[in-house]
Write a protein that binds this DNA or RNA. Sequence first.
DNA 1: ATATATCACTTTCATTTTGCAAGTTATATG
DNA 2: CATATAACTTGCAAAATGAAAGTGATATAT
Lengths: 117, 117
Amino acid sequence: MPKKPTFSRSPCPLAVSLDILGDKWSLIVIRDLFRGVTRYNDFLKSPEGVTTNILAERLKRLEAHGLISKSAYQENPVRYDYALTEKGRALGPVLREIARWGNAHYPGTYKPPFKVG
Amino acid sequence: MPKKPTFSRSPCPLAVSLDILGDKWSLIVIRDLFRGVTRYNDFLKSPEGVTTNILAERLKRLEAHGLISKSAYQENPVRYDYALTEKGRALGPVLREIARWGNAHYPGTYKPPFKVG
DNA sequence: ATATATCACTTTCATTTTGCAAGTTATATG
DNA sequence: CATATAACTTGCAAAATGAAAGTGATATAT
C-alpha cells in the first residue's frame, strides 16, 4: 500500500515547504544552480560565503528531498556536477517573488541578472 | 546624509530577504496574519505549535524589520493586536508561490482557504 | 474571600544547528 | 618534492531552538 505522507508540523503547504527550505542557505544554493553553478567549489565562491560543512550538508539534504541531483563528471577521484531536478526548477517563481520583494523593500539590492524559472 | 544600507551577506535581494525571513517560523506568523490572526494566544493555537519564547521573539523581530505593527486593544494590562504593514502584506505573492510549490509537490497538503496578497 | 482561569509574555536549561578553522584524500602541476 | 585543486570531513565554540515552568495583571467561579 502507498505510504501516506507524514507532515512534520502540519499539512499546510507553506509549513511543509519551510521544513525543507526554511533556513538561510538552501535557497541560496538553489539560486546558484539557477545561475549556472554546478560544482562544490563554485558554490563556495558566492559572495554570501557559505562554509564547507554547511554546503556539503545542504547539498545532501536537497538531494535527499529530490530538489537537486548529482552526476559524476570524472572518475579517480569521482567528482560531481549538481543540477536542479524538475522539482527544484519549479522553485523559480518562489525565487522570483522573494527577489522582487527584496528589490522593492531594500534599495541597493541588485536586480537578478539571470533568468529564474 | 542618508544612511547607506549595509547588507549582512551580500546585496542579493534573495540573500537580504532570507536574512529576515529565512527560518521555519517567520513566514508561518505572516501566514497567520493573512488568515486574520491578530493576537498572541491565537498564533499559539496554529497547528504547527510554535512555542511561546519563539513566537515572542519573532513578533519583535518582524516588528523591528517593519513587516508587522502592534496596537493596544486594551489598557490595564495593555495588550496588543498585531497587523501586517504594507511591507508585510507585500509578501502575499511569496506566500502564494511557496504554497503553490508545496501543493504541487506534496500531495495531501491543503489548498490555502484564505486569500493571500 | 479564595481558587482557578486567561492573556501575554519571560526565564531557565538542555538539545540542536551554525560558523570557523583545520584536516583528509586523490590527483595534477611546477 | 612541494604546492595546488577539488570535494569533502572533523572538532569545537557560539548561537538558535524547543520544552517547560514561572510571572503579573485582571476576570470569573465557588
